[in-house]
Simulated scan of single mutants.
Amino acid sequence: MASRLEAEHLYKVFGRRPEEAMERLQQGVDREELRADGITAAVIDASFTVEPGQIFVVMGLSGSGKSTLLRMLNGLLEPTGGHVRFDGQDLTQLSARELREVRARKISMVFQHFALFPHRSVRENAAYGLEVQGVPRAERNERAAKALELAGLAGWEKSWPDELSGGMQQRVGLARALATDADLLLMDESFSALDPLIRRDMQDQLIELQKKLKKTIVFITHDLNEAMRLGDRIAVMRDGRIVQIGTAEDILVRPADDYVASFTQDVDRSRVLTAESVMDTDLRGDEADCACETAMPGTPFNELCAISARVSHPVAVLDKRQKLVGVVPRQRLVGYLGDEQGTPVRCATPRDEAVKAGA
């Protein structure tokens, strides 16, 4: 599809003779060795594809390279090497004028710190991208009003930014991105400056908007719980490299290395895992009674716990054709809550009590 986003072997090196430093990286020179020479390898050989309508989350600690990677996707930073392709264009081959045109019409960015104009009203802020495009005033006011309504700010059009809470200001930034009707949204830690409750509210807002608009979104975060909640696919970065790409279940159940596994220790797995991700597919005849209550591969973890509490044997997992595709022993459910030797607990039991029950 034309609106697929592709990053191919992207490098970004800061310092003297960056192309030469990139070649050294390709030959296996360590990033720390370059740093000793005053060279920073911010992004190293990053490749991924984001399908139309996906939320692709890039996560990692500060300094991992995720924000630098994002800025190469819309040409705010020129890659030292590699290619970015979107909507049938190789953005790395465009002139500065052509890149500005792409950013004005096809790619919108939502920043961490709102970046609102204090001397413009909420509606004028939301319409700013359309003003840059040269859209007539009446049309841009109408489109801005619709975007503000989508973002939950109907009735606030004439207000000033300093009259809004932090969460509401971020909604204005989101509305500004939506008003241009860009196919690709780049969101750089857009919710990280918000209080936890407001942050969750904004996550809910984005999920609901995505159901309606089906935008292609690249979302940067350092919070794994946020990544798990929002991402159709997640890329984990460390020291400039992408160390794993996969679904939330992939990251939780099959971490690529100890670094990725360390991120998942405090994640509420019950909100992410399904029967398919925890079931045993090594079937041995009569391990489960299919005449009793059963689960489907997509059955959420908490619901699976409830079923397990109501039956006296492993839960049978049936596909759409009612074929047995796996079983889930009670002990495995407790294992995924963090205690391999524990006793089964009901899904409503808080995690700390579940662990205590297995002590």
Score class of each variant (00 low, 15 high):
residue 108 S to M: 08
residue 140 R to G: 07
residue 140 R to K: 08
residue 29 V to I: 14
residue 243 V to I: 06
residue 302 N to P: 05
residue 350 P to K: 00
residue 271 R to A: 15
residue 84 V to G: 10
residue 247 T to M: 10
residue 18 P to Q: 13
residue 198 I to Q: 01
residue 166 G to H: 01
residue 74 N to P: 03
residue 349 T to Q: 09
residue 35 R to P: 00
residue 124 E to D: 15
residue 238 R to N: 15
residue 138 A to F: 07
residue 319 D to P: 07
residue 151 A to K: 02
residue 308 S to H: 07
residue 38 G to A: 05
residue 329 P to C: 11
residue 339 D to H: 12
residue 20 E to N: 10
residue 293 E to R: 10
residue 186 L to V: 05
residue 32 E to V: 13
residue 338 G to T: 01
residue 273 L to C: 02
residue 14 F to I: 09
residue 128 Y to R: 06
residue 250 D to K: 00
residue 224 L to H: 09
residue 33 E to H: 13
residue 289 D to C: 04
residue 70 L to K: 05
residue 69 L to S: 07
residue 65 G to S: 08
residue 10 L to M: 11
residue 256 A to Y: 09
residue 239 D to I: 10
residue 311 V to I: 04
residue 346 R to M: 04
residue 73 L to P: 02
residue 146 K to Y: 13
residue 236 V to T: 02
residue 2 A to K: 14
residue 110 V to L: 14
residue 312 S to N: 15
residue 86 F to Y: 13
residue 326 G to Q: 01
residue 112 Q to W: 08
residue 67 S to K: 10
residue 288 A to P: 02
residue 221 T to I: 03
residue 104 A to D: 01
residue 335 G to H: 05
residue 8 E to H: 15
residue 229 R to G: 08
residue 186 L to S: 08
residue 240 G to E: 03
residue 309 A to G: 08
residue 172 V to G: 13
residue 308 S to Y: 04
residue 281 T to D: 06
residue 82 G to K: 04
residue 298 G to S: 03
residue 68 T to E: 13
residue 1 M to V: 14
residue 190 S to G: 10
residue 148 L to E: 05
residue 9 H to M: 12
residue 144 A to K: 04
residue 17 R to C: 04
residue 256 A to I: 07
residue 50 V to I: 00
residue 327 V to H: 02
residue 356 K to R: 15
residue 323 K to H: 15
residue 103 R to I: 01
residue 198 I to K: 02
residue 270 S to M: 03
residue 182 A to N: 09
residue 268 D to K: 06
residue 173 G to H: 07
residue 51 E to N: 00
residue 267 V to K: 10
residue 167 G to D: 09
residue 176 R to N: 01
residue 250 D to A: 04
residue 41 A to R: 08
residue 59 M to D: 03
residue 288 A to V: 03
residue 358 G to F: 05
residue 126 A to Y: 04
residue 63 G to R: 07
residue 271 R to P: 06
residue 318 L to W: 02
residue 1 M to D: 12
residue 172 V to A: 06
residue 305 C to P: 01
residue 267 V to D: 11
residue 347 C to V: 00
residue 168 M to H: 10
residue 100 R to N: 14
residue 65 G to D: 07
residue 355 V to H: 14
residue 77 L to A: 13
residue 317 V to Y: 01
residue 116 L to C: 03
residue 139 E to M: 01
residue 167 G to E: 00
residue 334 V to D: 04
residue 212 K to R: 15
residue 50 V to D: 05
residue 260 V to H: 08
residue 290 C to I: 15
residue 30 D to S: 15
residue 326 G to M: 06
residue 253 V to E: 07
residue 222 H to V: 02
residue 187 M to Y: 07
residue 323 K to I: 12
residue 343 T to F: 02
residue 334 V to G: 06
residue 176 R to T: 03
residue 317 V to A: 02
residue 189 E to K: 04
residue 157 E to G: 04
residue 335 G to N: 05
residue 211 K to F: 00
residue 343 T to D: 13
residue 312 S to R: 14
residue 96 A to N: 15
residue 250 D to G: 06
residue 213 L to K: 02
residue 298 G to E: 05
residue 6 E to I: 12
residue 297 P to Q: 05
residue 222 H to D: 10
residue 106 K to P: 09
residue 214 K to G: 12
residue 160 W to A: 12
residue 310 R to D: 12
residue 106 K to H: 11
residue 217 I to P: 10
